[in-house]
Design a protein around this nucleic acid. Structure first.
Lengths: 143, 143
DNA sequence: AGATTAAAAGACATTTTTATCCTTTATATG
DNA sequence: CATATAAAGGATAAAAATGTCTTTTAATCT
C-alpha cells in the first residue's frame, strides 16, 4: 500500500506530535527506540521530512526534532508523497499513462471510487487529526 | 499500491482472457510484445500463475498459455495475493500486528472503510468481469 | 526413436529499497 | 575560543524487487 519508509515517517511524525514541542525537542535516537525504527535510517527520513517542512529540527546541544504549529497541519498525504513520490497511491492500477474517467482502464471504475476516496482522506486529514485519535486511546506504537 | 509485478500479472491474464482459448494457446513472447512486459520476466510470472491455477499452460509444439473456463472466474485479489503476498494491501497502515475495529491504530478509521471496500472489490470481481469492461471499450494495453 | 517446440526451472545480473557508518556543519555552553 | 552536542550529508552495505540468460523437462510431429 504505502512503503515501509512512509510508515516509519508517519510513526515518527506522530511520535513528535504527541511528545515534542518547540521547547521540548526530541533526539532521533529517542524516537527510534519506542517506535522500533532503525536509528540511522530514521535519521535519513527525518532529514528528508525536515527538508520539506514536515518536521522542524535544531542542531547542537538542546537540539533535536519537534513539530511546529505549522507542521501539525501537514496533510498525511504530503508525508507519503515526500517519501514514496507522487505516483505510488494515485497511479493507474495497470500503469497506463492516460487512465481517467474519459479513458478508463478496465480496473478504473472497479476500484476507482474507493481509491479516490482513500487518497482524499489522506489529503484532507492532517497530523493534528491523528493526534486527536491518539488522545482518544488509539495507539500507534508496536506492542 | 500493488507491485509492478502484479500489474504485469493482471495485464497478462487479461491479454489471455481476451485473446486465448483452450484451442488457441498463446506463447509468452506473444503476450510480451503487445503488453510491453519483458519476456523473460513475464515467463517467470506466468509460471507462478500457472502453479496457482490462475492460468493454464501446455508445453511443446502447439503449446502456450490460455485461460480455462475455471481460470476466468479467478478473483482479481487472488492474482495480487499470489504475486505480492497476503499483506501488501490488507496490512495495517502503520504495520501494527493487531489493528482492527477493537484495537484500531490512529489511521485505521480514517482510511479503514475505503481500504476495506477497495479490497472487497478486488475479491468480488473476477477476470471475467474485467473482460466485460474491455468489451465495452476499456483498454488495458499501453499506448 | 530423433528432432523440434515451448514452458519449467535454475543461475545470475541489475536496480531499488532498506539500513549502517563515518565525516561535516551548526548550535550551545563553559 | 575550545569543547561537546546533535542534525546534515556522504559513502557504503545488505536485502528485496526486477530483469536476463541458460539448461531441463514435457509435448508434438515426422
Amino acid at each position: 500500500m504505502i512503503s515501509n519508509s512512509s510508515k516509519y515517517a508517519v510513526k515518527a511524525v506522530l511520535y513528535l506530535a504527541v511528545n515534542s514541542s518547540e521547547d521540548h525537542k526530541i533526539l532521533a535516537k529517542d524516537i527510534s527506540r519506542p517506535t522500533n525504527i532503525p536509528k540511522a535510517y530514521l535519521s535519513k527520513i527525518l532529514q528528508e521530512l525536515s527538508k520539506h517542512n514536515i518536521v522542524s529540527s535544531v542542531r547542537g546541544p538542546g537540539g533535536g526534532f519537534y513539530l511546529s504549529d505549522e507542521n501539525i497541519k501537514t496533510p498525511l498525504m504530503k508525508i507519503i508523497q515526500v517519501i514514496d513520490g507522487d505516483n505510488r497511491l494515485t497511479s493507474c492500477m495497470l500503469s497506463l499513462q492516460e487512465c481517467n474517467a474519459e479513458h478508463p482502464c478496465p480496473m478504473h471504475d472497479l476500484v476507482g471510487n474507493t481509491k479516490v476516496n482513500f487518497v482524499k482522506n489522506l489529503e484532507q486529514n492532517t497530523v493534528g487529526d491523528l493526534v486527536k485519535n491518539i488522545k482518544m486511546g488509539k495507539s500507534f506504537l508496536p506492542l
